[in-house]
Design a protein around this nucleic acid. Sequence first.
DNA 1: ACTTGACTTCAAGTCGACTTGAGCTTTTAT
DNA 2: ATAAAAGCTCAAGTCGACTTGAAGTCAAGT
Lengths: 146, 146
Amino acid sequence: MDITEVAKASGLPASTLRFYEEKGLIQSNGRSGLRRLFSANVIERLALIALGRNAGFSLDEIAEMFTPDGPDINRALLLTKADELDKTIEELTAMRDGLRHAAVCKAPNHFECPKFLRLLRIAGKNRFRQPNRLKENKLKRGVKKT
Amino acid sequence: MDITEVAKASGLPASTLRFYEEKGLIQSNGRSGLRRLFSANVIERLALIALGRNAGFSLDEIAEMFTPDGPDINRALLLTKADELDKTIEELTAMRDGLRHAAVCKAPNHFECPKFLRLLRIAGKNRFRQPNRLKENKLKRGVKKT
DNA sequence: ACTTGACTTCAAGTCGACTTGAGCTTTTAT
DNA sequence: ATAAAAGCTCAAGTCGACTTGAAGTCAAGT
């Protein structure tokens, strides 16, 4: 497959595929002239990468998991991530409930509302920073460029 | 309070407080010489900001919510965010289960495991990018620096 | 023969949320 | 009186994951 086919099949722009190749996350098997040729299994690779990203792995972490030839995964790392996700899920759930409550809360000032204050305590507990690209959700396929 | 007191009380570095002030998220009420003076309620403001960040709001969005004098919150926006969180929670839950399964799965290749494939489908559905600072979790002193 | 358009490389730019550094001024302690 | 500590401003740097732009190469269609 050439890079455009992979792009179409994966939904990722060609630039990302080149970037991933440079990072060692995927590889092309040869060239036709200048052009990269990929074998079909790169699609599965990419799905696996997407999976990892969604689970909160960085590209570097994913690359590490791939290095022992083939996707033979570090099980301990997986379990650690699962635990982290548990914690995140718990926090987000509290946030969600808090938001829903805040939206209907009658208290003139949220600081007078016990439920809201409970929320604040949760927020206070976890002071990590979490950038929110979540909203973007841009499925920019590199198909039409113009 | 001076900036260091606020920093200690909030757990945020002074640089962040200046940055937030510049962004209009908090304000200092006057100066003592060069030095900013903050009133105590800035702490609550900061808690509210932390809350918003954890819920996935950007600083700009938080600033917007603050503009109609006082934290009088845009309820529709809150509900929208709550819905987004629902979706995110659902996805993360699937991921977590998938990770736990993958960690114990006997299939020599994950692509031969139906559960794993189900996971991949979920991953494929949501192609948003989610940077993972989650791992950092640096509680940059403030309270305690062991 | 020549243009087009898909592909290539490499460097630099982007985004959000801060942090860091340089070079001052002010306060506090000796 | 003086020097260190703490604040200040403003510009630039950082991080991760890509994207974009400039400039070049190459196969194909007219």
